[in-house]
Design a protein around this nucleic acid. Structure first.
Length: 485
RNA sequence: GCCCCCAUCGUCUAGAGGCCUAGGACACGAGCUUUUCAAGCUUGGAACACCGGUUCGAAUCCGGUUGGGGGCACCA
C-alpha cells in the first residue's frame, strides 16, 4: 500500500453549489470512502473580486444536505488547516519567493495595459496569446530596485523553453503537451494573493492530497502544476480529470439552459437520494445493469477505473424518473414525514391539519402516481380540500341524464348501511345500487369519481371514498349535484 | 488562431478482437391488465461519425478526416 488516500473538493465560493460541483465533490467523496481515505473541503477564495457573502456556509450546507460530509475543512479542523486559502497567504508568498530565489520564477512589472496590447498584437497576427516574457531576464538588482521604488509587480513562473511533458491521468491515460505552448503563468498577483496554479500545488502538497479528482477544464493547465511540483521537488498527486457535464446542446453545463444550482433542484422537490444517484451516473456506472443506488451502495461500488471519458448531458427526464423510483423505495412512514414537511411549508387554504393516518392513506393511494412529494397535493388536491370545480371534459363524457338519480340512489344506500367505513363497503353498496336499476357499474363509478374529486383520474375510487369517509363523500356528491345538474 | 480532450440509439450508457444480426435505462409508439389515471408486464422503432490500415476476424487496435467540447487572464 502506498500513501494514505486523501482527496479534496476545492470550490471557489462564488455563491451556490453547481451540479457539476456536486458531481466532482461526490466522486471525490465516493473515492475517499471506498478507499477508506479522507475527504477534505478546501475553499479557493484567492480572487477577492469574486467573493460572495455567505457562499461558504451555503456550500457546506448543501454538501451536507446531499449527504457528503468532509473529514477536514472550514469548521472541521484537521492537522492541515486552515482550509480557506485567503487565510494562508503567507504560505504562498513564501513559496513564491523561494521560486524566485531559486531562479524558477521572476518579478514582472508589466502593466495590464501593456499586457493587453501584447495580446491584441498577437491576436492580430493570428498568434496564440501568451506573455512575451518581457521581464523574464531582468536582473535581481533591477527587480529589487523597482520594487523598492514602489512599482507594482507580480511573480511569474518560468516555463521551460522547449521540450514537452507527458503525464498520466487515471481516466485519460497519457497526455502530452509541449512546453512552448505554455505561458509564464502569474503565480502571485500584485495584491499578494496567489493565483490558482500556485495555491493548488502548494495546498495539495501541504495537505498531503494523494489524488486530484477534478473537472476536465483543468487538463490543459496540469503541466503548469507539474512543473511547479518539479521546481519544489515534491511528488505530484495522481490525477483524474472528470468529463464535463453538458447542456442539452452539448456545451459546458451552464445556467441560461436550465437549472444549475443544487439548491434549485432541492427546492423543486428533488430528493437528495435521486440527485446523488443521478449525478453519480453521469460519467460513471457499475458495469452491469443496475442503476438505482443509495449513497452507501455507491461508496461500495465506486472506482475511478469505471469513469468514462466523454462529456454527459444532464438529462432531466431521467432524473425525474429516478426521483419517482427513490420516492417509491421509501416506506409510507418516511414519505409521511416528507409530506408533512411539505404541508408545513406550503399550507393549504384554511391551514387544515390532517391526521397521520389520513395522510398515510393518501400516501399509499398515490405513491405509484407521484414523482415528487409535492405531487401528493398537486396531483390529488381533492384529498386536501373539496373540488372547487369539475373538469369540463370529464363532465361532458361522464355526466349523463341518469347520473343524478344514480348518485342519489347511492347516497341513500350509503346512509342505510350500518357501517360503511371500509373500502369494501363502498364497493358493495355501489354494485348493489347499480344492480337494482340494471346499470353498468361504470355508469356510477365515473360520475361518482368526478363528483368527489372534480377530475376523471386518480387512485381507485373506493380508496378515495374510504379515505374521505361517508360524511364527506355525501357532502361532495350533494355539492356536485347542485353544481352540475 | 494555437493546444488538449472526446466520439455506440434523441439522452445516460454496456461493450476491454470472435460471446454483437450491438445489451440495458430514460423518453416515445403499440398491446395486455384495469372503473379512470398511474404502476406493472409484453412489445416496437432507434446507434457503433467517416475513410484507410492491422488481423482469419474490428464497435473494440493504429493512422487520418470530420464533428463536438474544453483551455489559452493579476478567474477559478
Amino acid at each position: 500500500m502506498g500513501n494514505p488516500v486523501r482527496v479534496r473538493f476545492a470550490p471557489s465560493p462564488t455563491g451556490y453549489l453547481h451540479v457539476g460541483g456536486l458531481r466532482t465533490a461526490l466522486f471525490n467523496y465516493l473515492f475517499a470512502r471506498h478507499q477508506g481515505g479522507k475527504f477534505v473541503l478546501r475553499i479557493e477564495d484567492t480572487d477577492q473580486s469574486r467573493k460572495v457573502e455567505g457562499a461558504v456556509e451555503n456550500l457546506v450546507e448543501t454538501l451536507h444536505w446531499a449527504g457528503i460530509h468532509f473529514d477536514e475543512g472550514p469548521g472541521t479542523d484537521g492537522a492541515f488547516g486552515p482550509y480557506v486559502q485567503s487565510e494562508r497567504l503567507a504560505v504562498y508568498q513564501e513559496r513564491a519567493r523561494q521560486l524566485v530565489e531559486e531562479g524558477n520564477a521572476y518579478f514582472c512589472f508589466c502593466t495590464p495595459q501593456r499586457l493587453d496590447e501584447v495580446r491584441r498584437r498577437q491576436l492580430a497576427m493570428k498568434l496564440s496569446p501568451s506573455y512575451d516574457r518581457h521581464c523574464r531576464n531582468l536582473s535581481a538588482e533591477e527587480a529589487a530596485k523597482r520594487r523598492e521604488a514602489g512599482e507594482p509587480s507580480v511573480i511569474r513562473m518560468k516555463m521551460p523553453n522547449d521540450g514537452e511533458m507527458t503525464f498520466d491521468d487515471v481516466i485519460r491515460s497519457k497526455v502530452t503537451i509541449a512546453y512552448k505552448v505554455l505561458d509564464d503563468q502569474v503565480i502571485l498577483k500584485s495584491d499578494g494573493f496567489p493565483t490558482y496554479h500556485l495555491a493548488v500545488v502548494v495546498d495539495d502538497h501541504l495537505m498531503q492530497i494523494s489524488h486530484v479528482i477534478r473537472g476536465e477544464e483543468w487538463l490543459p493547465s496540469t503541466p503548469k502544476h507539474l512543473v511547479l511540483y518539479k521546481y519544489f521537488g515534491w511528488q505530484p498527486p495522481v490525477y483524474a480529470h472528470l468529463p464535463l457535464l453538458l447542456n442539452p446542446d452539448k456545451t459546458k453545463l451552464s445556467k441560461r439552459q436550465g437549472d444549475v444550482a443544487v439548491d434549485e433542484y432541492r427546492s423543486k422537490g428533488y430528493l437528495k437520494e435521486a440527485l446523488v444517484n443521478f449525478v453519480a451516473f453521469l460519467g460513471w456506472n457499475p458495469g452491469d445493469e443496475r442503476e438505482l443506488f443509495s449513497l452507501d451502495q455507491l461508496i461500495g461500488e465506486f472506482s475511478l477505473e469505471r469513469v468514462g471519458k466523454s462529456g454527459a448531458v444532464f438529462n432531466i427526464e431521467k432524473l425525474n424518473w429516478m426521483n419517482a423510483q427513490h420516492l417509491r423505495m421509501k416506506d409510507d412512514r418516511e414519505v409521511l414525514v416528507l409530506l408533512k414537511e411539505y404541508l408545513e411549508q406550503h399550507p393549504l387554504n384554511g391551514n387544515k391539519e390532517f391526521a397521520d393516518d389520513y395522510l398515510l392513506g393518501v400516501v399509499s393511494a398515490m405513491r405509484e402516481r407521484v414523482v415528487f412529494v409535492k405531487d401528493f397535493v398537486e396531483k390529488s388536491p381533492y384529498f386536501f380540500k373539496p373540488p372547487a370545480d369539475f373538469d369540463p371534459a370529464v363532465v361532458k363524457k361522464r355526466w349523463k341524464h341518469e347520473t343524478p338519480q344514480l348518485l342519489r340512489d347511492y347516497m341513500k344506500a350509503l346512509s342505510s348501511v350500518e357501517n360503511p367505513f371500509k373500502k369494501e363497503d363502498y364497493e358493495l353498496t355501489l354494485r348493489r345500487t347499480v344492480e337494482t336499476v340494471k346499470k353498468a357499474p361504470g355508469e356510477l363509478i365515473h360520475p361518482l369519481r368526478l363528483a368527489v374529486s372534480g377530475v376523471g383520474s386518480g387512485p381507485g375510487l373506493y380508496d378515495i371514498l374510504a379515505l374521505l369517509g361517508r360524511e364527506e363523500t355525501i357532502r361532495r356528491i350533494n355539492v356536485a349535484l347542485e353544481k352540475l345538474s
